[in-house]
């Protein structure tokens, strides 16, 4: 059970109030019609599954209903930071 800081409600809440909505920072192609099948397939189906730092989209479903981003360590379950949509993570995996 995670304890998650909602950047909009500005306090910690229990995980049961949230939904994970998959990998963050996957912008919809601006012109889908010009994508090849492969490009579209990559956008639709291919996701990272890192061991360690990962950026995810979450929504405070039972609270303010706002989506936000989370940087999370998939190995230790440590939440490194949360940040609003449109913002960039300050913690990223070492390449």
């Amino acid at each position: 059970m995670y304890h998650i800081y909602c950047p909009h409600c500005a306090e910690y809440r229990e995980e049961e109030e949230f939904h994970a909505a998959g990998q963050a920072h996957l912008p919809r192609p601006l012109d889908p019609d010009s994508c090849t099948d492969e490009e579209w397939g990559t956008y639709l189906f291919f996701r990272k599954n890192p061991r360690g730092i990962h950026h995810e989209l979450w929504v405070h479903a039972a609270g303010c209903r706002k989506f936000f981003n989370m940087t999370r360590d998939t190995q230790t379950y440590e939440i490194k930071e949360v940040y609003k949509i449109g913002e960039k993570p300050s913690i990223v995996a070492e390449s």
Partner: peptide, 13 residues
């Protein structure tokens, strides 16, 4: 509802 919100909040704000 969550579908509409996710597109509004993340793609077309």
């Amino acid at each position: 509802l969550e579908w509409l919100e996710i597109y509004h909040q993340t793609e077309w704000p």
